[in-house]
Write a protein that binds this DNA or RNA. Structure first.
Lengths: 396, 396
DNA sequence: CCGATTTGTGGCGTTCTGCAACGTATCACG
DNA sequence: CGTGATACGTTGCAGAACGCCACAAATCGG
């Protein structure tokens, strides 16, 4: 089924227009004609259909400072939202995220211990039930996206292995779907983070990027290759944490020796600083403020190991941008020059010359936006699939 | 320019049909309808246009053993060819490759020393001039593809850095275009090898694969991610040879320490075998025949280092298949079990469980097919762009 | 030799986009 | 404050491509 016909053209064009306003936030109709290369009349028809389906709204232009008739501004409807769910070892976070990227609500439900799948599903379902009044009154929900800290099979949302949560082969998506009635998609949290940063954070407009996140329990990552999120054959791609960076005997959570995750850890930074627990911002501040040689030595050690892994990934993938999140961003903040130099010494000039290293921008909303994006994907691919929501006019 | 219109539908459908017969070799019209999902009448019209343009031919079916009216077999025209050029340290190889993947001719022009860009271009142009009688008489040439052992900028074929040839920032494509009059595209040899193996070798039908080639001068690689050749932002992707695999002080050709290319070399295998020079097949035979403990130890050492690099790539990319070419295929042939076990010990279960390791299949034709594929790319993307070649019927 | 099955062929209708002409809203200038 | 220039929306029409349908053709099985 690779051929295309009229339906596909229409679907594709609707998809392109909706994606554009989804990512740019708002655009005039004339801008849409320029970007898409489509005719004015075609854009008018496409936008009209999207308006009728309740996906976008048109409003009068404010002040263009341009000669000529002003063009209506097209922006995404604020009613269309997705639900985002992110189970972690100490909490389950649930959010309402608009198609415009806005996080309307974020609820963190702490748990005493690492939740089982059933507990996570029940918590999510209960919180969503609590929101249902608000959801039914104000929003159209397209579905649920789940960001899982582990390996997730792409097509059906089966959690193959989430080591920190202790989940193995759990049909998370299916269970949450049954519990809430909404369609559910799940994916690896770091892959979703990469996607979120790419579209709404540090990587806007970039086609080849690597994202590495340093969390309490390890290092995960995701990547965009040629403009497309790379999931690999089973959705398990992006495990940068298990790249070998030294011959040492330290083992990581998977029992592999000398890996990035074995050498570069948040807990060791906290230990050398003498901190018990700290969030990412506090850790970064403490590192920047510290003058202790021991702290400095540990930071340098971790930076040097991180550089090996980054250089390897850069040599292989030749990305335009490397985005660091979590405590890895703190390492970058402390000594960007050292990290850059170390990466350079392990990588090829041509690939290294064009790469930028930067910190993640989205902070606490990162996974909410990424998970929601997963849920929006289907709508963006085929805006006409959803039944026209608010006003089922007979013209459709 | 992301919108699509009628022209794009037609172009896309022509492209799909031509790609199918290009890769499958031949297919009946009814098979094309099934695979593409298009209507019989549409397929008939598309095939008719491709026939008129001289790109495919229709022939009567031989014996179907099926009830019903037999469907004509559509196959690629044997007249349509691309030229393939591959400069190396000791020779320049030029080939004529058909759109059906057949290598009509392969000429290896040995050189006394590593050729300069100008010398390589002159050799290629001279050989092509010698072929011109044959080309003009029998073939339609769509262009030239060059497989370069080095980093090549994708969009204009500038050779950024080919260390073994000693080339830096050489406008190879431009020069060869001026010397021959044919459009020229250039890319990294290993990337083209990956593409060739994917479509015509060990990786048929596979969407995520890694290809590593071991040559006299080092290790290069290429990959297919999500069905698309991944070139990175500048076309420099795939440099697996510079992945760090140990803490040793051995340096590779780029001066980086402890890398795959520093640890795993063809020359060390030849040394331990006591061979002066040998081609890949001889090397493999010698390794398989040897019972020397020293040889075995060296093979094991190289296999273990290779495994680290492969495991890292597998963790990051989660491919379905890893294809090994050159002397790396010989290592696989000697002890596939050891390599598999070693890769397994450095990689994550989920990603490792689904990956297959196999040897390259295309041998000496690999880069000819890969380079030609590069030249065919434009034609496959838009079969209507080329002016109708043999019979400029007024119906067009 | 005949029916069933599968597929090619040709005409028709549908759908979507592009184009051109006209209407409209804004800015610049006097 | 009015006029021209500019840019854009709107509308009607034409063209292009595909799907559908009915009919013809070719093969196999009995």
């Amino acid at each position: 089924m690779q051929g295309s016909s009229h339906d596909d053209v229409r679907r594709h064009n609707l998809s392109v227009v909706l994606r554009l306003v989804h990512r740019s936030g708002a655009a005039s109709r004339s801008q849409l004609t320029k970007v898409t290369g489509l005719n004015r009349s075609t854009i008018a028809a496409l936008v009209a259909e999207l308006v009728e389906r309740g996906l976008v709204i048109e409003r009068e232009p404010s002040s263009t400072n341009q000669v000529g008739r002003p063009s209506p501004i097209v922006s995404v409807s604020e009613q269309v939202v997705a639900l985002a769910v992110n189970p972690e070892i100490d909490a389950v976070t649930i959010g309402i995220v608009g198609l415009d990227g806005q996080v309307h609500r974020r609820v963190r439900y702490p748990t005493d211990r690492s939740p089982s799948v059933l507990e996570a599903v029940n918590i999510a379902a209960a919180v969503i039930d609590g929101m249902r009044g608000e959801l039914d009154a104000k929003f159209t929900v397209v579905g649920i996206g789940v960001a899982v800290p582990g390996l997730v099979r792409a097509h059906d949302g089966l959690v193959r292995h989430a080591p920190h949560l202790g989940w193995v082969d759990e049909p998370l998506a299916e269970m949450l779907e049954a519990a809430t009635g909404y369609p559910v998609l799940a994916a690896n949290d770091a892959s979703l983070g990469a996607m979120a940063e790419r579209f709404f954070g540090a990587g806007q407009g970039i086609t080849d990027l690597i994202y590495l996140n340093g969390g309490a329990s390890g290092i995960g990552g995701g990547m965009i290759v040629g403009g497309v999120p790379a999931g690999g054959i089973g959705g398990y791609a992006g495990e940068f944490g298990h790249t070998r960076v030294s011959d040492s005997d330290r083992v990581d959570s998977a029992g592999i020796r000398g890996t990035l995750e074995a050498e570069v850890t948040r807990s060791e930074l906290l230990d050398v600083l003498g901190l018990a627990g700290a969030d990412v911002d506090e850790l970064e501040q403490a590192l920047l403020a510290s003058t202790s040689p021991a702290v400095r030595a540990e930071v340098n050690r971790q930076i040097d190991h991180l550089a090996v892994a980054l250089a390897g990934a850069i040599n292989i993938l030749n990305p335009q941008l490397v985005v660091l999140g979590g405590f890895l961003a703190a390492l970058l903040a402390v000594d960007a020059d050292r990290l850059r130099a170390a990466v350079g010494s392990h990588s090829l000039g041509a690939a290294f010359g064009t790469v930028r290293l930067s910190a993640a921008e989205l902070g606490a909303n990162l996974l909410m936006i990424g998970a929601a994006e997963l849920a929006f994907e289907g709508l963006l691919d085929d805006p006409a699939a959803l039944p026209a929501a608010p006003a089922p006019a007979q013209g459709a």
